[in-house]
Amino acid sequence: MAKDDYFVIMYMLLKRLYSLLKNGKVISEEELNELGSQYNQQYWNYILLNLTENEYITGVTPIKAWGGSGMKIIGDVQITPKGIEYLFSNSMMERVKNTLKDIKGIIPGA
């Protein structure tokens, strides 16, 4: 799987949000923007909006306007209990996790 694969990005974001939640923190808008800056903006918005629509995260709302759509951060972006369950019980998330582990084992510093 490529590092910009939909499920890889989803896994990395949900994993980060869950880690922050366990530490009593939320992701800063700056860190969220930094994560998204690695990808095409339309693609990043698509991922965030789908995570929101599937109720895996909160704090993002869709914006519809002439010429397209986007998203707006409306509060703290956090993982939901449904997102935590998805992160740990979905077979695709498990495959991504195992793929990323394998890459780290093969490539030092990855």
Results as ranks from 00 to 15, higher is better:
81 P>A: 04
96 V>R: 04
52 T>P: 05
12 M>A: 09
3 K>P: 05
34 E>N: 15
30 E>I: 14
11 Y>A: 00
92 M>F: 03
99 T>I: 11
21 L>G: 00
44 W>N: 03
57 I>C: 02
61 T>P: 00
108 P>S: 11
92 M>R: 15
8 V>K: 06
37 S>A: 09
80 T>A: 01
86 Y>T: 12
71 M>N: 09
47 I>A: 05
60 V>H: 02
43 Y>T: 10
46 Y>A: 10
85 E>H: 13
80 T>G: 05
36 G>I: 07
23 N>F: 05
9 I>N: 01
63 I>S: 11
29 E>W: 08
80 T>C: 00
14 L>E: 00
14 L>I: 00
70 G>D: 06
85 E>P: 02
90 N>Q: 08
84 I>T: 13
39 Y>W: 03
2 A>V: 04
18 Y>N: 08
12 M>V: 08
34 E>D: 11
105 G>I: 14
103 I>E: 14
110 A>E: 13
14 L>K: 03
105 G>N: 15
73 I>P: 09
7 F>W: 10
64 K>G: 05
104 K>R: 15
29 E>F: 11
103 I>S: 07
69 S>M: 02
102 D>Q: 14
65 A>H: 03
102 D>R: 13
107 I>V: 15
32 L>Q: 08
8 V>A: 04
39 Y>D: 13
45 N>M: 04
95 R>T: 14
19 S>P: 04
104 K>S: 15
109 G>C: 11
67 G>C: 01
81 P>S: 00
61 T>K: 11
26 V>G: 06
77 V>M: 00
81 P>V: 03
38 Q>R: 14
27 I>D: 07
7 F>I: 02
108 P>L: 14
71 M>S: 08
100 L>T: 10
17 L>E: 02
19 S>T: 12
90 N>K: 07
13 L>W: 06
78 Q>F: 01
84 I>A: 03
57 I>R: 03
45 N>L: 13
56 Y>S: 02
70 G>V: 07
47 I>W: 06
13 L>F: 12
74 I>W: 00
45 N>G: 14
76 D>T: 02
52 T>H: 09
31 E>C: 06
12 M>Y: 00
31 E>K: 09
33 N>L: 13
77 V>I: 12
47 I>D: 00
29 E>K: 12
48 L>P: 02
65 A>S: 12
56 Y>H: 06
70 G>R: 04
7 F>S: 11
69 S>A: 12
7 F>M: 06
98 N>K: 15
15 K>C: 02
102 D>E: 14
89 S>Q: 15
15 K>E: 08
34 E>W: 12
98 N>T: 11
100 L>E: 02
89 S>W: 07
100 L>G: 01
32 L>E: 07
17 L>C: 05
24 G>N: 10
40 N>H: 11
74 I>H: 01
104 K>V: 15
9 I>E: 01
67 G>A: 05
99 T>S: 13
79 I>C: 00
18 Y>A: 03
23 N>K: 15
44 W>G: 09
105 G>V: 09
50 N>S: 08
96 V>F: 07
62 P>H: 05
49 L>P: 04
95 R>D: 11
87 L>K: 01
88 F>N: 11
101 K>D: 09
78 Q>K: 14
79 I>N: 02
8 V>L: 02
32 L>R: 09
31 E>V: 05
102 D>T: 11
